[in-house]
Nucleic acid binder design. Sequence first.
DNA 1: GTTTAACCCTGCACGC
DNA 2: TGCGTGCAGGGTTAAA
Length: 277
Amino acid sequence: MPELPEVETVRRGLAEVVTGRQLKSVEVTGTRSVRRHRPRELARRLEGRAVAGLGRRGKYLMIGFEPPDALLVVHLGMSGQLLVADRADPVPAHTHVALGFEDGSEVRFVDPRTFGEVFVTEAGDGWRPAALAHLGFDPVEEPPGPAAFARLLAGRRTRLKALLLDQRFVAGLGNIYTDEILFAAGLRHDRPASSLDRAEAAALYRSMTSILREAIRRRGSSLSDMQYRDVRGRPGGYQSRHRVYDRRGEPCTRCGAPIERARAAGRSTYFCPRCQT
DNA sequence: GTTTAACCCTGCACGC
DNA sequence: TGCGTGCAGGGTTAAA
């Protein structure tokens, strides 16, 4: 399931391929993926325009068009992929949107579970569209700093796992990276956010920023066949660095205690019962 | 304000 | 081998 590091990897891969290219056609074959629009609306608003650049806010990918006042926003949901192909290549199952460029290349939005979506919106100031105004800070693009982060935690009684998953608080974390971040910080998922002292808040902030940067460096996490792939269909490499996620019963890499699984914020949650307090 | 559950959907693991 | 069942998860919404 693509989270911030995976979306960032897709953004970088896509930027290399489509920046400056003119969009020739938009073909919509899966209406659920473009549920905010009528099927022809994407084509009407974007065809004939050139790609100005790529951006990202949390798990949302933004393709900006010239003149810079329209954005094609993509959320990959659970199973979404953006794949670069040649127009002549066979079209994979569950391809819902195809962006055709003037040079014959194609960007395909493939999404078996259809939790993802694609929509077009006004760019707004500095690529901050109103449609994404609900998002909290992006921990890679706009890290608030440890002191401000501690202040954000202070007023919240919510448990840490639920808070980190809340896109209105911090944008880009999902189930995998919240568990990895909490382990690295030595904090349990069910600690109320407001119970952290200054050192714990700082540790959480450091873990969050450093794990995300390292995961981006390793091009994200891919856990199984269905899972995330980059724009060329290649898996990421960060899964080998997972210390707790999907490791129930395996020994903690730090203390040897078996990793446990619990239900938190409606999600499977993996943690070390000894290292995380 | 916070928490829980349901919903959308498909592939896959599992038990029989 | 084949079938049915339950689970997985991101985001939104409703209910508690």
